[in-house]
Amino acid sequence: MSWTDRVSPAVRALAANIKLVVFDVDGVLTDGTLTYSERGEQVKHFNVKDGVGIKLLQRFDIATAIISAKSSAALAKRASDLGVQYFYPGASDKWPCLQEILDQLELMPEQVCYVGDDVIDLKVMTRVGLAVAPADAFWMVHDRAHYCCDKPGGKGVAREVADLVLGSRMSLEDAYIKAMLPEFEVIK
């Protein structure tokens, strides 16, 4: 079964309208495991494929954001390394952060894809154009998502979302040509 056969026409239509993709972190960009160093610092494990997906979105002028309830040096470093334009760590209420981004970009909620995995994300997910959940998201989140990924958190969810959004506009082969160029790794 091809990628486009797995995605309904209704979801592809929602994805075609997206101008901003917002990611939660724990359970989305990571597998949700919390590891602490001897000094008490959080250690997070990120998937390289997700980084390619986030960069691809940016290369096609789709803004990216990270809004997380937690804050850590590892997360700040990852957001910086990927050139994520809008970064909101330590946000227990995510909607005001998203509203600030919408105001800056002059976007409507219908133009936003939000990727979340737990109940803290529902306030945002129920108000955006495309709500996405990892395969292992909490059941309530699955029930309210427009699209549930094949991948679990931390195992390629952002890449799958990038494929969904970009694949609604063009062939994925055309999109991935940009990832093969030497300048792809350079942060704009």
Rank of each mutant, 00 (worst) to 15 (best):
K70Y: 08
F138Q: 15
H142M: 04
I101L: 10
Y114C: 03
R127G: 07
S2G: 03
C148R: 15
R127D: 11
A15F: 13
L107V: 12
C97G: 00
G167K: 07
F46K: 05
V119K: 12
K123Q: 12
H45G: 09
D24S: 13
D118F: 01
V112I: 04
E183G: 12
G153M: 06
K77N: 11
L164Y: 09
L98K: 05
A13E: 14
A69Y: 00
V11S: 06
I54Y: 02
D24R: 09
V132H: 02
A131M: 02
R78K: 12
V161H: 08
V119P: 05
F138W: 15
V128E: 02
Q111P: 02
M140V: 15
D118H: 05
C148H: 09
V21W: 08
G32L: 00
R12H: 14
D24H: 05
C149N: 03
I67D: 00
K94A: 03
D61M: 01
L29E: 06
L102E: 08
F87H: 14
P109K: 10
A15V: 09
L56A: 03
Y147I: 06
A79I: 01
D93E: 13
V11I: 14
L29G: 11
Q58P: 01
A15N: 09
L130R: 02
V128D: 06
D26R: 08
F184R: 08
V11D: 12
D61V: 00
A175P: 10
K77C: 11
Q111R: 02
I54G: 00
S2M: 13
E185R: 13
D150R: 08
K178S: 12
L107F: 04
F23Q: 07
K77G: 11
G40E: 01
A145C: 14
D163H: 08
L29N: 15
R127A: 13
Q99V: 09
V21D: 07
D143G: 14
V115Y: 07
L75Q: 12
F23H: 05
D136V: 10
I62S: 01
D136H: 13
Q85E: 14
M140D: 11
A16D: 12
W95I: 04
S168G: 02
S72W: 08
Q58D: 09
G153R: 05
E106P: 02
L130W: 05
L20H: 10
S68W: 04
L172T: 11
T126P: 06
A13I: 13
D174I: 06
A73L: 12
I177H: 13
S171A: 13
S68V: 06
V7A: 06
F138H: 15
L75D: 10
F138R: 09
R39M: 05
Y86H: 09
T33L: 14
A133V: 11
A13C: 12
A65K: 02
F60G: 01
Y36N: 01
V186P: 02
R78Q: 07
W3P: 03
H45C: 14
T33S: 12
A69T: 15
V115T: 10
V115W: 10
Y86N: 00
K155R: 15
D117M: 02
M1R: 09
R144V: 07
Y36A: 02
S168C: 07
